[in-house]
Design a protein around this nucleic acid. Structure first.
Lengths: 150, 150
DNA sequence: CAGTATTTAGTTGTATACAATTAAACATTG
DNA sequence: CAATGTTTAATTGTATACAACTAAATACTG
């Protein structure tokens, strides 16, 4: 009796519904989409918004530091930062003390954008209808998962 | 005393560390990367693997049905499915009963791939060092979040 | 100090994502 | 049944992601 059910366990692991990966993948994309209307009003993409959050906090960061914090490499960041430079939001210059590094800094326009953006997080939270406790718990678990994967 | 601390609340919401979105975004990409070595051995990308999981379960699905289940539109799926067709894994044909729809079916090679893939989920779980309870709890919360965003 | 190794961005090529538009097939309605 | 509206994929254009490679600068080492 039991043996006839055994193989089913393995098969079911291949079902989309039983995966951890798919809800994570889908939720990430949908959450990014939820930001869209607010970010579009600022002419920002979601990864650009992440870069801004770091620069608003740290003023100046090298491409390497941005890459470490965002877990993105130069293949992604260089073109992204060039687009942000074209929009006059950030400056890109070699570090005089180490010409290998490129320092990304905020322009006045980039600074000013913080004022417009400061309401984005709350606007998004309103969309969610989750308690701060729930959100905090989810963040904790995701951070834990992330640590496993690093 | 208290009033001088008030504004800090809003500012902190703009810090990367306090966001829900970033851990979600990063964990999703890192988990996808964790699949890489296993999927590379099958010459698969992660979204292609998701399509396969659905087709192994359902045998045949239209582009629209795949799009609903994966929350992806034809702009993403059409080129992805064309690449899968080129690799002889799936067939693409118009539905005779409704020429607007395109039915995606598995070829024998696509069927056969299931045998190779069936160990992927367990191999990935080994990487995680999370209890089934933890994983299940995370999936539940992500599914709940996903529902909020739909 | 010369030669080698490492670090850092940038470049190239491929594969998603997704908004906006197009085109064909089907459905609806007067 | 003709005109209009809707549905479904495909196409176009832009922006990530990321592996693999390149090039320049710096660090290291005998």
């Amino acid at each position: 009796m039991d043996s006839s059910l055994e193989p089913k366990v393995e098969i079911d692991l291949l079902k989309l519904d039983n995966q951890l990966c798919f809800p994570l993948y889908a939720a990430s994309r949908m959450l990014t989409k939820a930001y869209q209307p607010f970010l579009l009003a600022l002419d920002l993409t979601y990864p650009q918004y992440l870069v801004f959050m770091l620069l608003w906090e740290h003023e100046q960061l090298t491409v390497k530091e941005l890459g470490e914090k965002l877990m993105l490499d130069s293949g992604t960041l260089t073109p992204l930062l060039k687009r942000m430079e074209q929009k006059q939001w950030v400056s890109r210059r070699r570090d005089p003390d180490d010409e290998r590094s490129v320092i990304i800094g905020l322009t006045p326009a980039g600074q000013a954008l913080q004022t417009q953006a400061c309401r984005v997080p709350e606007q998004l939270l309103e969309k969610l209808d989750m308690s701060p406790t729930e959100i905090s718990a989810l963040r904790t678990q995701l951070t834990h998962l992330l640590a496993q994967l690093t």
